[in-house]
Write a protein that binds this DNA or RNA. Structure first.
Length: 756
DNA sequence: TGCCCGGGTGTTTTT
DNA sequence: CACCCGGGCA
């Protein structure tokens, strides 16, 4: 097993651990994927059947990469038998096998975020609940959070604490919406993302024989990115592992960045409780980055209070300093980065794929796209609006979905009048009401409206009838037709091709091309793997909701990668531009009210820095367009947390040519003085220039603040203290602001003044 | 029923 | 600024 020789001591120990529970705490860049892959290879070489291994990853991309790497060692035939994928894809697979136990069809639809929100929205309307108070996103968040903690709709509505909480925040109807939502999904034969995990839990809980079956199958369990699992996922793992306890989890608490999605670091602590005789391995040597980058990252993360002690180090060379770049505006930032890539490419003979631009929010990509395009640099955006989420694509997919699962309400609503066939809102409302009253699906009502006491004029009835029979004609061919043949015909028969083909605007042409691209993709699917089986459209459709753009990589030419930091997790690049490092953007404005949120932002910053191998550029802009307004920005506090010895302040020449503002002059003078303090001197002039709002806002001493007081907050205005909690410096206050509602404030950070 | 216009509203992050 | 939604009109 010569492959094991490439490992260092702790890596080797972890990779050759065979039986019993184990946890690997792996610092950034310490080779955890390598350990996981080699461990799997080692298991197989030691007689473990690949069929008995399940390996859960965070993204499909990570899964595929690992699969390739394992196949390289043990051969593809063995490798393909390992169950490897995301929680969502693996458990949707199991749910399809076991669906009937839960009274679901095995071809259930997976609702993506759009479908879910659209359904919640209709429910809120139908129930006559105020949409202004019950914002769809917020309701979805509550329902999702409940599901991730395995709180069913019934539990939710009967749990006194939750009801109390919802009443206190003025939203007592969420339980009702949750109930209706679950019913509607069920009648539609649909599960949302959270259901895939929730229902797996139900399955394992209510059907002991199923649990035993999968416990027996998955004798060896591996979980990557364990710090980002939520309770629902945790419990699935725990149950599956209960029989053999051959469980291996790999994670890094410093890289936990998904708590907003219910991820819980607590799971790492639970691990020690659940498996007292577990073995722990710590990987602390970083192989990815230069000393400078590793130490800067250590600087940053040291500011977090809550973490498992570990010391990441590297024997790599010291490397370049981290460049700090200031631009006048968001557009200039784009130009700077594009120019810099252009130059580095030429000077160092690097291909495009060696570069990544990382940002906090998807909306920031625009200025970089424009600038890169102008220099003819090929780039690829990961995440954001994915191909499969585009309207035209979703519309065609909705026809496929509806053909495969006639009860899919969201699919039906999407296409029943697209292209326009004269079935409008009024008719649809009638149908919906009848479906609800009779606890059935829309489809059943359309099939025979009269059965449900509905009266329509004959023209409308004819329209229903022809829509119904068109869809049915597709449905009956699903099992006998080739995916591509059927898809192409559906695109034609439904009128989609004609509709889009007639639109000669640039957007229309692009939409048409997207449809063609989707059809091409299906063709590829049809032609793939010549094992003789018929490739069905329903098979193509199965996990389409779980696919993201990153899964459809085309490597025709090397491209610059643009993505959010969340999406960059697990990746590495020789050159990284970390952009938009401004207060209120990164850290996000919404994270400033609690220590936990701020620490998560800092971990995110840590993840971002540690993606870089050799060159790291930190960039911020002084002004930025937001909500259509030009706003002044100040540099992110995180930049200050890096010791100045690791930073380099670039010369003026890298800034795009344009009339300098007066403060630009100031910056040059300042840096030429060569003043060196322990902090970053170049940040200070900007700080002074902050124009909004003048910060003579003095906070009062936190210890004085008490329940009942009227206070003034710098951003939220006047408010009343409802409760306080803890002692300073960690004293928190719940304050009600008429303008923004209830807020939890950590008084150390919040700018609050006592009014009376 | 379908289209167009205007106002209101909103931004983390993802499977 | 962009998008979405609702209202009003053809």
């Amino acid at each position: 097993m010569e492959f094991l020789q490439e490992l260092n001591k702790p890596q080797l120990e972890a990779a050759t651990h065979i039986n019993g529970p184990m946890m690997v705490i792996a610092g950034a860049g310490s080779g955890k994927t390598r350990v996981l892959t080699y461990r799997i290879a080692h298991l197989i070489k030691n007689g473990v059947d690949p069929f008995n291994i399940i390996s859960l990853t965070f993204t499909n991309k990570a899964a595929r990469e690992m699969k390739t790497r394992i196949s390289d060692i043990i051969g593809e035939n063995e490798g393909r038998n390992i169950w490897m994928g995301t929680f969502h894809s693996i458990f949707s697979r199991i749910l399809r096998i076991e669906a009937e136990k839960l009274n679901y069809p095995s071809n259930f639809t997976i609702y993506d975020t759009q479908d879910t929100k659209s359904l919640i929205k209709s429910i809120i309307k139908e129930l006559g609940i105020d949409e202004k108070v019950y914002k769809v996103g917020m309701v979805y968040g509550r329902i999702s959070g409940a599901k991730n903690n395995l709180i069913s709709a019934v539990n939710y509505a009967t749990n006194p604490e939750i009801q109390e909480e919802d009443k206190r925040t003025g939203k007592p109807e969420i339980g009702r919406i949750y109930k209706a939502y679950v019913q509607r999904c069920f009648r539609s034969g649909a599960m949302d993302f959270d259901d895939l995990l929730f229902n797996t839990n139900v399955l394992l809980r209510d059907f002991p024989e199923v649990l035993v079956k999968y416990q027996h199958k998955f004798k060896y369990i591996l979980v990557d990115e364990y710090q980002d699992t939520n309770f629902s996922q945790y419990l699935i793992i725990k149950q599956l592992a209960a029989a053999h306890e051959n469980i291996c989890v790999v994670g890094d608490d410093a890289q936990s960045i998904y708590s907003f999605r219910g991820a819980n670091i607590q799971n790492i602590l639970n691990f020690q409780k659940d498996y007292p005789d577990f073995k722990i391995y710590k990987l602390e040597q970083n192989y990815r980055s230069s000393k400078t980058i590793v130490e800067a990252a250590n600087n940053v993360i040291a500011n977090n209070k809550e973490q498992i002690p570990k010391e990441v180090w590297t024997s790599n060379e010291e490397g370049e300093k981290i460049k700090l770049q200031r631009s006048l505006s968001d557009n200039d930032e784009g130009v700077f980065v594009a120019n810099e890539i252009f130059n580095l490419k030429n000077n160092k003979q690097l291909s495009n794929d060696k570069f990544a631009i990382l940002y906090r929010t998807n909306a920031q990509s625009r200025s970089f796209e424009e600038a890169l395009r102008r220099l003819n640099l090929a780039y690829k955006i990961y995440g954001g609006q994915s191909f499969y989420q585009r309207k035209e694509i979703k519309n065609l997919l909705a026809y496929f979905r509806l053909a495969a699962n006639n009860n899919d309400e969201e699919a039906l609503k999407r296409v029943i009048n697209y292209p326009a066939r004269g079935i409008g809102k009024t008719s649809l409302d009638k149908l919906t009401i009848a479906a609800n009253e009779n606890s059935t699906s829309l489809w059943e009502v359309i099939k025979s409206p009269s059965k449900f006491g509905l009266k329509f004029n004959s023209g409308t009835l004819n329209k229903f009838e022809s829509f119904y029979s068109m869809i049915r004609s597709f449905s009956v061919r699903l099992d006998s037709n080739d995916a591509y043949d059927l898809a192409k015909e559906m695109a034609k028969t439904t009128g989609i091709l004609k509709e889009l083909g007639g639109d000669k605007t640039p957007e229309g042409i692009s939409r048409f091309e997207n449809i063609q691209e989707l059809l091409n993709g299906i063709k590829e699917f049809s032609d793939s793997d010549g094992d003789g089986d018929l490739k069905k459209l329903s098979d193509f459709l199965i996990d389409v909701a779980l696919l993201t753009d990153a899964d459809a990589d085309d490597d025709s030419e090397p491209k610059v990668s643009l993505m959010t930091i969340h999406a960059a997790k697990g990746l590495e690049f020789p050159v990284v531009f970390l952009v938009g490092l401004e207060e209120n953007l990164f850290p996000s404005q919404l994270s400033l009210n609690s220590r936990a949120d701020l620490e998560e932002e800092r971990r995110l910053f840590y993840v971002a820095i540690t993606r870089a191998e050799k060159t790291l550029v930190l960039s911020y802009a002084q002004t930025r367009f937001r909500w259509g307004n030009l706003i002044q920005c100040e540099p992110s506090r995180f930049v200050d947390e890096i010791d100045a010895q690791f930073l380099e302040f670039p010369s003026k020449t890298t800034e795009p040519k344009r009339k300098a503002f007066s403060f630009d002059q100031e910056r040059i003078n300042f840096s030429s003085t060569g003043k060196s303090t322990s902090q970053n001197p170049n940040l200070k002039p900007v700080r002074k220039l902050k124009t909004s709002p003048p910060s003579n806002f003095e906070s009062d001493d936190a210890s004085l603040i008490a329940t009942g007081m009227e206070v003034m907050h710098e951003k939220f205005g006047k408010g009343k203290v409802i409760a306080t909690e803890g002692e300073s410096p960690n004293k928190k206050a719940t304050v009600f602001f008429p303008r923004v509602g209830h807020k939890q404030l950590l008084l150390r950070f919040a700018k609050v003044k006592i009014l009376n």
